[in-house]
Design a protein around this nucleic acid. Structure first.
Length: 645
DNA sequence: TTTAGGG
DNA sequence: CCCTAAA
């Protein structure tokens, strides 16, 4: 069977492609027990999920926290063995089963399929088994799109500690049934309703000015949080590509033999979670260019301080595992919190595996603010982006046991009691903002999630009625939005356009919400990409958020160009956009370029907020005029040159 | 830093 | 918007 990880992004349920069956299980050699197909390493799963959801960045090995091996059996050996394991084949990927694997959530298909979502290249078909996988891995493009986590199936020792996102050294002890699915259901606006744990996690998104100046920024959210920063969307395709390639190198080679290894050896898995970011509409292949930014992004490993604070997203709903091989019984989780249920595990002295099934994760509360005049399509995208922002902004997994957060990542499952059947019932996982985790490389904005206007429909999951789901959130925010948001956005174009969202989480449990403001008019303007100005790592390489030019800006630009011409962008900037810190002369030049293009194409082909034809006519006129002037100038110079010669 | 263009 | 070669 293949392990299916489902990520329901609240809406439809995005399922991670089931991976090649068996997935990789990291097992040391000599493991006596056979790994069940459906078993998946909890950490792996989590990592996977996280990886899927978030983009992880970090690729520096150092930063990772490998799972510590404390196991009685393993400890001593670990050192030595790890090295051995380091080789390439540590994990095995088994081919996918079929049936069960085949159910991919529509969401995924949706995402993958339509729109050049980042998942686009990802195999969304179940069929893709091992073979497909390998093949897939070879495909760079695909690899890029691929999200690391999605396919991992592994086993973890209960002794391992979870920590660093990037690398995981795993030993085969704790198993989670592969069937686990992670669902990130609620993107809806109300947290309260679903907070399981009684605590709400909120992500707050503060829109801020994109650039350096935050002066004019509009703060949509009143809450400030330091703890959580959303990762900048670093989903640059290039970066992703890098990560992807790195990541995939290892995965494919896992062998079956490795699966069985009971010595408790740990096998290091390094994976970088990468984000897949596909450009909307772009058919480009991701050029593999490295960005400067990227370098800077070292990852901070910190996990430290804020470890558990943050937003607790949602606990996992029913976790139950089946012990396939061991005959253990699965207990339905009956967590008081409603969510998690522990599954039981078979404990054998030698290999005790804890099987867990994570049914779903809940997305922290999101607040969305959008003008009444916005289109449904933009709303959908906004929500999608908000979700993506949250997911991609840097989440970490929190473990709750009996209502308490298990903060010590170094404790073994055994020590924490996670392997205890009784406690499993109260075991829960949460998705919370990861303050420290902001590796530039992973910063995200995953376009992949952006659905084309037309294809947006499936966003809402079957579980939730379509409109109903969104309503809550919207209703909350909409009351005042028009005035506020529009006022700021549209009119303030020059100065502070609220776009970037800063997601921060309250240190503790408090609310975190994502506020998404959308300019009334521009459909495309959804500046929802969260980013953290504060985190340097991210900041360095961030791609600026997209801020479509408003009509008034276009007007100002046209006017300035008419007067100054097309070769003096700096002057144009000074003249018309001096206050708009986020508009650089390069931006203006680019905008002019697009305006000229826009003016030349048919209205039907134009996208985005429509620019008055009158302005476009002026654009063409100015363009023609200055083009001509330029030609004259050149001719003049040329003649002069000739004369001199 | 600006320009100018390709991506 | 990004990235860069040139200027």
């Amino acid at each position: 069977m293949v392990l299916q990880k489902r990520l329901d992004y609240g809406f439809n349920g995005y399922q991670v492609p089931s991976i090649p069956q068996g997935s990789r299980s990291a097992r040391g050699r000599g493991h006596k027990k056979k790994i069940e197909n459906n078993q998946i390493c909890a950490f792996d799963l989590l990592a996977t999920v996280a990886g899927k959801l978030l983009q992880e960045q970090k690729d520096s090995p150092a930063s990772t926290n490998a799972l510590a091996v404390n196991d009685q059996h393993a400890v001593a050996k670990s050192t030595v063995k790890q090295e051995q394991m380091d080789e390439e084949n540590q994990f095995k990927i088994e081919s996918c089963d079929h049936g069960s694997c085949n159910k991919f959530g529509s969401a995924e298909e949706l995402v993958a399929g339509n729109s050049s979502s980042s998942f686009g290249n990802y195999p969304n078909k179940v069929e893709r088994g091992l073979h497909g996988f390998d093949k897939y891995c070879e495909d760079k493009e695909a690899a890029e799109a691929q999200k690391i986590g999605s396919v991992i199936n592994g086993i973890i020792p209960d002794t391992c500690s979870m920590e660093g996102p990037m690398e995981l050294d795993m030993k085969p002890h704790a198993l989670i049934s592969s069937d686990s699915s992670v669902e990130v259901p609620s993107c809806r606006g109300h947290v309260p309703h679903d907070s399981f744990c009684g605590r709400r996690d909120d992500l707050k998104v503060v829109s801020r000015d994109d650039d350096e100046n935050s002066s004019g920024c509009t703060q949509l959210s009143n809450v400030t949080s330091k703890g959580f920063r959303s990762r900048p969307r670093i989903g640059d395709r290039r970066i992703r590509k890098l990560l992807a390639s790195k990541y995939w190198k290892m995965a494919p080679r896992l062998k079956a033999e490795d699966l069985s290894n009971s010595d408790g050896e740990m096998k290091p898995i390094h994976y970088n979670r990468k984000s897949s970011y596909t450009r909307q509409r772009s058919q480009r292949n991701f050029p593999f260019k490295k960005r400067k930014l990227f370098d800077g992004s070292s990852i901070s490993t910190s996990d430290g301080g804020i470890s558990s604070e943050g937003i607790s997203s949602s606990p996992i709903k029913g976790i139950h595992g089946d012990l396939t091989g061991s005959g253990a019984t699965v207990h339905e989780a009956s967590g008081a919190s409603s969510s998690a249920a522990g599954q039981q595990a078979t404990f054998q002295l030698r290999d005790s595996h804890v099987k867990l099934r994570i049914k779903s994760f809940r997305v922290p509360e999101l607040f969305i603010e959008i003008p009444e005049s916005a289109t449904v399509g933009s709303l959908k995208r906004t929500v999608m982006e908000a979700v993506t922002a949250v997911l991609g902004g840097g989440l970490r997994v929190g473990v709750l046991l009996q209502g308490k957060k298990v903060r010590d990542d170094n404790k073994t499952l055994l020590q924490t009691g996670i392997c205890n059947e009784d406690k499993l019932d109260t075991l829960g996982f949460t998705l919370e903002p990861n303050p420290t985790n902001a590796p530039a490389s992973l910063c995200t904005e995953d376009p992949s999630f952006q659905l084309p206007n037309d294809t947006a429909e499936p966003i809402i999951s079957t579980r939730y009625p379509t409109s109903p789901v969104l309503d809550p959130g919207i209703s909350i925010a909409s009351p005042d939005p028009p005035a506020t948001s529009i006022g700021h956005f549209v009119e303030s174009d020059h100065d502070s356009v609220p776009s970037p969202i800063d997601i921060s989480a309250d240190k503790t449990i408090s609310d975190s919400r994502a506020l998404v403001a959308v300019p009334a008019i521009s459909v495309e303007a959804l500046a929802v990409v969260p980013f953290n100005r504060k985190s340097r790592r991210c900041e360095i390489a961030q791609r600026r958020i997209r801020r479509p030019f408003s009509v008034s800006e276009v007007e100002a630009l046209v006017q300035a160009v008419e007067k100054l011409g097309t070769g003096r962008w700096r002057d144009v900037k000074l003249r018309a956009f001096d206050n708009a810190k986020h508009r650089t002369y390069v931006d203006l030049k680019d905008k002019w370029k697009t305006l000229v293009h826009t003016a030349k194409i048919s209205p039907q082909q134009r996208r985005g907020e429509p620019v008055p034809q009158e302005l476009l006519d002026r654009v063409l006129a100015a363009h023609a005029y200055w083009y001509q002037q330029q030609a004259k100038q050149q001719a003049k110079q040329q003649s002069e040159t000739c004369l001199l010669l």
